Computed example of a mutant assay.
Amino acid sequence: MLFDTHVHLNARQFKEDRDETIQRAFDAGVKYMVVVGFDAETIPLAIDIAEQYETIYAAVGWHPVDAIDFTDDYLTWLKELASHPKVVALGEMGLDYHWDTSPKDTQKEVFRKQIKLAKQLDMPVIIHNRKATEDIIAILQEEDAAQVGGIMHCYNDSVEYVQACLDMNFYISLGGPVTFKNAKEPKEVAKIVPLDRLLIETDAPYLAPHPNRGKRNEPAYVKLVAEQIAQLREMDLNEISRITTTNALTLFNIKKE
């Protein structure tokens, strides 16, 4: 039984075969999924999908690349949506210094607003980080995000930052890159993260794991991530699956079906 903690079934890449993709995931042993909404288009669809399937949930947040479009009305909207019974987290949120679409100061402001909202609602947060690790850790610390904790989504940093994340009550989630042959850092991280803080994800349709790298990713492939981690830690696949699913259920406050 597997839990894909971060999937974009609401992406346009799944428009033609979303239901079939979900069924393939179920058939592969992926019982639970969290569909992540990150802008005005994808957030409502994330909730719609979650409403259709008993073991699929949603997260709602505002992506840093679109921070320039964020308004207080959107913040109010997120607050309202967070009360939906299938919404289990706020995010993804954070900082992205790779795509030059929103000024850094604007990204930081929107990030802080969402953390404050999460604390107000007592909900975990899902963090997007691209080339902004030190600023993200500083903001999480300054805003006392440890009160709610959350997920460092698709963790792609070195081992040296893991402890700072753990100290703030965050889980480390690994995705497709841990299976890439030349990806040394994710493999090292996979070996040292405490088992009770480890999660797995696909970030589908992006970052498909080996041997599907470069193709459209889908939630069924989270099993490949679990298999790689099990191999790296010299553990049984079923045990990794059980541990990471239990961790996700705990974090998202989901009762086991």
Rank of each mutant, 00 (worst) to 15 (best):
residue 100 D to F: 08
residue 115 I to V: 08
residue 112 R to I: 07
residue 72 D to R: 01
residue 220 A to F: 09
residue 234 E to Y: 05
residue 29 G to K: 13
residue 175 G to A: 14
residue 247 N to Y: 12
residue 124 P to K: 10
residue 112 R to Y: 02
residue 175 G to C: 11
residue 204 A to I: 07
residue 251 L to S: 00
residue 204 A to N: 08
residue 101 T to H: 13
residue 171 Y to C: 02
residue 41 E to D: 14
residue 59 A to G: 10
residue 14 F to E: 02
residue 175 G to I: 08
residue 171 Y to T: 00
residue 250 T to W: 12
residue 161 Y to E: 00
residue 230 A to G: 07
residue 134 E to T: 10
residue 120 Q to A: 12
residue 153 H to Q: 11
residue 73 D to Q: 14
residue 179 T to P: 05
residue 213 R to D: 05
residue 54 E to W: 08
residue 120 Q to K: 15
residue 48 D to C: 06
residue 92 E to F: 00
residue 24 R to D: 12
residue 150 G to F: 05
residue 81 L to F: 02
residue 235 M to Q: 00
residue 21 T to C: 01
residue 233 R to G: 03
residue 62 W to I: 09
residue 203 D to A: 10
residue 150 G to N: 06
residue 201 E to K: 04
residue 132 A to E: 05
residue 103 P to A: 08
residue 85 P to Q: 03
residue 88 V to E: 07
residue 201 E to Q: 04
residue 80 E to S: 03
residue 236 D to A: 06
residue 44 P to Y: 01
residue 207 L to A: 04
residue 246 T to P: 11
residue 193 V to H: 05
residue 86 K to N: 01
residue 134 E to V: 09
residue 144 D to P: 14
residue 96 D to A: 01
residue 244 T to Y: 14
residue 38 F to N: 11
residue 210 H to V: 15
residue 46 A to W: 05
residue 88 V to P: 05
residue 255 K to S: 13
residue 238 N to Q: 13
residue 60 V to A: 00
residue 112 R to V: 04
residue 31 K to H: 13
residue 252 F to L: 11
residue 177 P to W: 15
residue 129 N to F: 13
residue 160 E to S: 11
residue 257 E to R: 12
residue 148 V to A: 06
residue 146 A to V: 13
residue 232 L to N: 07
residue 87 V to E: 08
residue 200 I to Y: 05
residue 4 D to P: 10
residue 112 R to H: 06
residue 204 A to G: 11
residue 7 V to C: 15
residue 116 K to A: 06
residue 194 P to V: 10
residue 243 I to V: 13
residue 163 Q to S: 03
residue 209 P to M: 07
residue 166 L to K: 08
residue 91 G to K: 04
residue 145 A to V: 04
residue 234 E to F: 12
